[in-house]
Structures are given as structure tokens and as C-alpha cells.
């Protein structure tokens, strides 16, 4: 069996698709390289020995920079990117559409509307501490609404996508209205949020997001078989005993939670959710474990590098990572599509 490997421990068994393993390994190496270059580069650039020294002495000046400023921000970016990539991969499976992404279901527009609403209406009284919660709630409410509107004795992928697009347009209008009608300073911070940024990420952010993502990954492990099944048509799925609506609901919920968590801490950076799974599918054609791992790793790398570009290219300015995800990601994505057509 070259393509599918069995993992069996007692009654527990899984089919693992590991081919091509060397590409997965290469992406692992790329992840480590990105991590170390993100740690080394910044306002205070560090050479390999200086970086090693800083990592070994957390209380030194450079140690503080690396451990308290750079590492949490990098990890936050990686978690945000990985979560969005997995969310995008799941949605592309469930919707059977390569254009599906967390944006499609209204995750980004819901989170954006809620975040901008919070910033312009509530932040003056309660500070920005509750911003992640507001954004996550907005994302989940939007997905719930899309699901409810698309429901007519069950849902179909097409109806979900169309409802998502419709609701997104409405929410974007609401966001724009809030932006133009609120104070200038609010508009500025709202814009940074809307572009997507992991600026000022600290260890407690990382810990909270990591717990959320870990729980989602366990759920993903349980739902992996269904994530593959989501790609077959409904008639066939019923034929092999799948409760199609339950499966679709569970996978959509998982994707929405992942994207909700990510936008809560990373802002509207969701373009990652479209390009990372696309790239992963080009590197690992066979859907399965390797493709999922690849998506997550690529999502993490993209956001890490985008954030690195944001905080180093235009020093002393610190630009939001989302800008570079779009500025570098979009042309790259277009190039991929153009090459695919040929």
C-alpha cells in the first residue's frame, strides 16, 4: 500500500495518507526556518549566535525581545494562519468548491461588523480587551445566520455559498456605515483590525488561542473520515450510511469555530484560508492527512512571513500582516491560477 498507511493500536485505527512524505517534511523544515528568521529579524536584528544566546538567557535584553515580544507574536501569527488554513480546507471540502473560504460563509464579514461595531460603540467604555470575544461572536452569529437562511429541509453546498455571499454584502455595508459614522481615531484602529494584524500579541493571547485550536484539532481527528466524505455527492453519502445534514453541520461548525478563533486574535486576515489550502492541494494532491498537515503548515508560514514583512520592511513603521498576506498572496494566487489554466 503505497498511498494509504494503516495506523492501528488495539481497536483504534486510522488510514493515514502520507504521500508524498518528503514534501510534508520539506514544509516542516520551511516552518522551522520561518520561525527562526522571524525570531532573528526585526528592529534589533540578531545573528545565529546572538539569537541562540538570547534564547538561552530569557532575562537579558535581547532575551526579553525574543521571548516576550517576538516569540508570542510569531506563535500567535502561526496559530491564526494554521487555524484559518484548516478552516478553509474544511470549507472547500464541505462546499465542494475550491473558492470556498472562511469569507464565503460570512465569517470575516460577521467578525468585522462585530469588531467595528464594538470599537465604535463600546470600546470607549470597556477598552479593547473584549474585542476578540466580540469578533468571534460576530463570526459565529454570521455563520449561524447563513446556515439558518440556507436551511430548507436540509442545506446544499450551493445554497450555503449563495447565502454567505448575500449576507456578507449586507454585513460589509453595515461595517462601512459604522466606519464612516464613527470618530476618526476609531476608524483608524478599526482599519488596522480590518486589515488583520497580530501586533502586540502576548503569551496569554497565545495560550488562549492555542487551547482553542488544540480542541479543534482533536475534533478534526475525529471528523477526518467525514471531511473526506463531504466531497462525495449527497445521494452516494446517504447510500453508505452517512447522516449528511449532521455531517455537514458538524464540519461547518468546526470550520466556523476555527475561523472565529483566528479572526478574534488576528483580525480580518482570512485570505489565508483561501490560498493555503490551494497551495497545499498543489503540493499534496491526494486528500487526507498529509494535505491537512500541509495546509496548516502553509497557513502558519504565510502569516508568520507576512507579519515579518510588516514589521521589518518599513521600519520604524509596523504594518499589519494582513496587508502583506494580500499584497504578496494575491499575485502569487493569481499566478497559480494562470499556470493551472495552461
Amino acid at each position: 500500500m503505497a498511498d494509504v498507511r494503516a495506523l492501528r493500536i488495539g481497536g483504534f485505527s486510522r488510514a493515514i495518507v502520507w504521500r508524498p512524505w518528503w514534501r510534508v517534511l520539506a514544509v516542516g523544515v520551511a516552518l522551522l526556518l520561518s520561525l527562526s528568521s522571524c525570531l532573528a529579524l526585526g528592529k534589533v536584528p540578531l545573528g545565529p549566535t546572538a539569537l541562540w544566546h538570547a534564547l538561552c538567557t530569557p532575562s537579558s535584553d535581547t532575551g526579553l525581545i525574543v521571548w516576550q515580544l517576538r516569540l508570542p507574536r510569531i506563535l500567535l501569527g502561526a496559530l491564526v494562519g494554521g487555524a484559518l488554513a484548516l478552516s478553509g480546507w474544511l470549507l472547500q471540502q464541505v462546499m465542494r468548491n475550491p473558492l470556498a473560504s472562511p469569507d464565503t460563509l460570512g465569517v470575516t464579514s460577521g467578525a468585522s461588523a462585530a469588531a467595528v461595531g464594538y470599537l465604535s460603540l463600546l470600546a470607549a467604555d470597556s477598552g479593547s480587551a473584549w474585542l476578540p470575544l466580540a469578533a468571534a461572536a460576530g463570526a459565529l452569529v454570521a455563520v449561524g445566520l447563513v446556515y439558518r437562511l440556507a436551511w430548507h429541509r436540509g442545506t446544499t453546498p450551493l445554497r450555503l455559498v449563495l447565502m454567505g455571499i448575500g449576507l456578507s454584502a449586507l454585513l460589509t455595508a453595515a461595517t462601512t456605515y459604522l466606519l464612516v459614522s464613527s470618530a476618526f481615531s476609531t476608524t483608524l484602529s478599526a482599519y488596522v483590525w480590518l486589515t488583520g494584524s497580530v501586533y502586540g500579541g502576548n503569551w496569554s493571547d497565545v495560550a488562549r488561542l492555542a487551547v482553542g485550536v488544540a480542541v479543534a484539532l482533536v475534533a478534526m481527528g475525529a471528523l477526518m473520515r467525514h471531511a473526506l466524505l463531504a466531497g462525495v455527492d449527497d445521494a452516494l453519502a446517504v447510500g453508505i450510511g452517512v447522516r449528511v445534514q449532521v455531517m455537514r453541520g458538524a464540519l461547518t461548525l468546526l470550520a466556523a469555530v476555527l475561523a472565529g478563533l483566528a479572526v478574534a486574535w488576528g483580525g480580518a486576515i482570512a485570505f489565508v484560508g483561501l490560498i493555503a489550502p490551494h497551495l497545499a492541494k498543489r503540493l499534496v494532491r491526494i486528500p487526507g492527512t498529509a494535505q491537512v498537515v500541509m495546509s496548516i503548515a502553509l497557513g502558519a508560514i504565510i502569516v508568520m512571513l507576512a507579519d515579518l514583512a510588516g514589521r521589518t520592511l518599513f521600519l520604524p513603521r509596523d504594518l499589519p500582516a494582513g496587508l502583506f498576506v494580500a499584497a504578496i498572496g494575491a499575485p502569487f494566487f493569481l499566478m497559480l491560477l494562470i499556470r493551472q489554466v495552461r
Binding site: V4, A15, Q93, R96, L228, V232, K281, I286, P287, Q291
Partner: peptide, 10 residues
């Protein structure tokens, strides 16, 4: 409809 990229064995 088969999922994209799936192998025969899968």
C-alpha cells in the same frame, strides 16, 4: 461525484 484528487483505493 468523487472528491477532488482522491485515489481509487481511497
Amino acid at each position: 461525484v468523487a472528491p477532488e484528487g482522491i485515489t481509487v483505493r481511497q
